[in-house]
Design a protein around this nucleic acid. Sequence first.
RNA 1: GGCGGUGUAGCUCAGUUGGUUAGAGCAGUGGAAUCAUAAUCCACGUGUCCGCGGUUCGAAUCCGUGCACCGCUACCA
Length: 602
Amino acid sequence: MHQGPASKRILITSALPYINGVKHLGNLVGSMLPADVFARFMRLQGHEVLFICATDEHGTPAELAALEQGLDVATFCREQHAVQEGLAKRFDLSFDHFGRSSSPQNKELTQYFCRRLEANGYIEERLTKQVYSKTDGRFLPDRYVVGTCPHCGNENARGDQCEACTKLLDPTDLINPRSAVSGSADLEVRESKHLFLLQSKFADRIREWITDKNKENWPKLVTSIALKWLNEGLHDRCITRDLAWGVPVDRPGFEGKVFYVWFDAPIEYIAATKEWADENPAANRDWRSWWKRTGDDTGPEYYEFMAKDNVPFHTVSFPCTIMGANEGIETTGEKPWKLVDYIKGFNWLTYYGGKFSTSGKRGVFMNDAIDLLPSDYWRYYLMANAPETNDSSFTWEHFAATVNKDLADTLGNFVNRAFKLTEKHFGCVVPAGGEPGFADKDLALQTADRLREYERCLEAMEFRKAAQELKAMWTLGNMYFDRMQPWKSIKEDREQTACTLRSAIGLVRFYALCSYPFIPGTSARILEALGLRLEDETWPDGSWPHYGSESVEGRDPNWREGKVLNYSRLVEVGREFSIPGPLFMKITPEQLAEWEDRFTGK
RNA sequence: GGCGGUGUAGCUCAGUUGGUUAGAGCAGUGGAAUCAUAAUCCACGUGUCCGCGGUUCGAAUCCGUGCACCGCUACCA
């Protein structure tokens, strides 16, 4: 892939999947997958992209999951990281680096940010009271203390809230409190010293930042969640915990304490970039250049992808960390750290209208999905139905219908009929002869309009609409076939038919490239059938063979220089191809029934 | 309890600042075609825009209210 002259630097991060267990399709479509589609689009356009993700490894759930499996937490995390990295590969998630929040780099940077914040007066020591379980030998987060609700008598109320009567609770409100970890009732309240980040001091600055002009094109979901937090009043936030697993607090009197997972997790975006640089010293990767503003220049464009549960931490908490650390940073000879330029937030993907649930094993998980079907099936379906402006519902019926109709029947079948028909009459060689006529130019113009809209949608990260445009472009190929009827014209005009089939094969190459962000595996298969390599390809634009303005001018009010591609010249005459066979297998009614049954929906 | 979101065609969803006969895809019905994975293409929408009330020349859109579902409520992440 070539880097164009107008090349931009684009930093993309996906919300970090939590280490605890395999992620489900909702997690995938909410951050990692759309970020990947965007990264692939931008790379193919010739921009310099750095795409960062990592596992979020700290926190109580990781410790407890390790305990349950009889592993020490470090081993557990190492294993689970490998599992998630393997799944990311199988879904063709093209991270430049898939890091770990437990890395030394993150330890170093987390401690650094805390020091910067303290230097600027944003850190305060406070005494807190917390429940300690002697049997478990640990402090318990509020919701890991269970007992009888004083309001409704529910015997399994959690220490933060009773789920039966929805009343908010303190762990000390509970009658007969016990540990959710061991069931032990041997609990006591102990005092503990902790660090607080004085977020309340940032309220005005965060509000100003979130409401400035540049945020007007952010998803409404994102700004409204941020404003909700601001309107409720920013609380100072405890950023340390009495746990063994995490980034240690490097401060006298804080031995045995670690930073709160939500403090160190976003910093891992930066730390993972350093991991990426450190893993290949010979490449001289300048990780700071991705995270620093440089003089008047604001540095790279930075995009974050996440589901709505993550939005507060990326619109409020992490920006506080960055803003607080940046104060007076010039005096240390350092440049300021970058704030995010665009947050793409997603709603929930539901499973038959209900919640995907890891603990309840409800829904479809990445490992199960990828064992059933190749990644492109999932990638296309999920992005075409991404929960962008609203929650959206996964059902097996809908999934099967989409795969069968769009991928197998519209795209797969078009590619197959183009290859098969050419083979039948000319062999597996791109045929010579003929000249494009009215219908060819009509196809080119219509496709150009679709392509322009498709590009606009992808740039704007409107993935659902982008998928619609993509499918519409595939349909134009089928329409072209039905209009030209090469199976009929071959009997009267072999030259003209050669041109038609050559154009169809040109369309095939075109589809391989423009579909690449969504279905990279299929793109690769198509290009391979044509004897082409992705590394040599570019986004279909003016550098591709196109009609000169005189050819179509006067007929088209939407004429745009260099964008109306001449499909009869997209693949050169005489090039040999192979027939890849069906690109997509249809999902049968039997499979559908079996999967619905196995993944207990409804 | 508080806050927020959602409720649009059988299904999944779009509907920019209120502006003519409310949209797309799928499903369904009819037709054309037969190169292809029985795949394609064309045509076809009488929808109390959740209910009620209000503002307005005009409301799916704004306001009030009721109902239903969902989420968050800061120590799960």
